[in-house]
Design a protein around this nucleic acid. Structure first.
Lengths: 164, 164
DNA sequence: TATTGTTATACTCTATAACTATA
DNA sequence: TATAGTTATAGAGTATAACAATA
């Protein structure tokens, strides 16, 4: 990696000292994170699944069934966006909608057999992707990294699973 | 943060053991990184600048002037996308286009006075944003974090400034 | 009236590819 | 023909808000 240092404007009478982009921890986090996500996105795309669809499927797998409101929380999206994601998954035969008998406004979302079989396969891809980028770290390094991230998440009360 | 452990499918005859989302380092990186970026995006939006526009402005500030091809490399985008970003910045009076005298096909992109004044202000926002999320870390923790990220970037030959 | 969910519309961002001008 | 850059088109993804059905 290049080692850009603080840069000084060379086109102005007044010198503005501006810290370099890559002096920020946030820069490096985004740099790596975007690659990790992009590669995973490409690997699940082979199974015709997008990142947000994966998070939805994963959530449904854990809970057995769910409703759009729960998915809104998981995905951090509006109900309109969630509705479209469910429709896409339905069209691919991975989930089905079922109107609640108790409250006919409410919908239950269920994984189909196809969806149930798919999730473990995608989870394996997630494992492999993580190993590719972080597998070389020592246990201590990995747990320190995760611990620092969790600490920041706690400090700022970050809650929604990030999709984008 | 929740401490989800390995989950076991409870709706299938065969039990699929699937590692939890948040057992992955990549999950936590994305989790934090997306918040850090989203907050910075919101803070530069006050100055009518998007993330990709910021990277372009920052690059132009460092180099004094540039051409679309150099920006393509910096931004990791196609020439069409870069052309549009330049047009947007031009419309906001932050950069100007100038046809090269030597090769009339080529364009130089220059920061205007407005653009030159803007970059240090945005850089301050970047500093503040980074401090907000990573300022509490010890010097050792911060440098260890950055060092791990740089190591991964080197290993996988990651090169383009990530924008999205 | 309030709530659940869908749908219509619009917007941002970017890729692809056709196109113009210059070399 | 090749290259620099623009523009037309399309697609993904999401928000907003209008809407229908149910409570």
């Amino acid at each position: 990696m290049s080692e850009k240092k603080t840069s000084t404007s060379h086109h102005s009478a007044i010198k503005h000292v501006v810290s370099s982009l890559d002096s920020h921890a946030g820069f490096w986090l985004r740099f790596v994170s975007n690659y990790v996500s992009a590669r995973f996105e490409a690997s699940v795309a082979v199974e015709r699944v997008s990142l947000s669809e994966w998070v939805a499927l994963r959530s449904l797998f854990d809970t057995g069934a769910s409703d759009p409101f729960a998915l809104m929380r998981e995905l951090g999206m509006t109900k309109g966006a969630v509705s479209k994601i469910i429709t896409r998954l339905e069209e691919k035969g991975m989930v089905s909608r079922q109107t609640s008998a108790i409250d006919k406004r409410a919908t239950q979302i269920l994984l189909t057999a196809t969806g149930k079989n798919l999730v473990p396969r995608l989870a394996t891809l997630a494992d492999e992707n993580d190993a590719l980028f972080f597998g070389h770290l020592s246990d201590k390094q990995r747990s320190e990294l995760i611990s620092v991230m969790k600490q920041i998440a706690d400090m700022h009360d970050l809650k929604v699973v990030p999709v984008k």
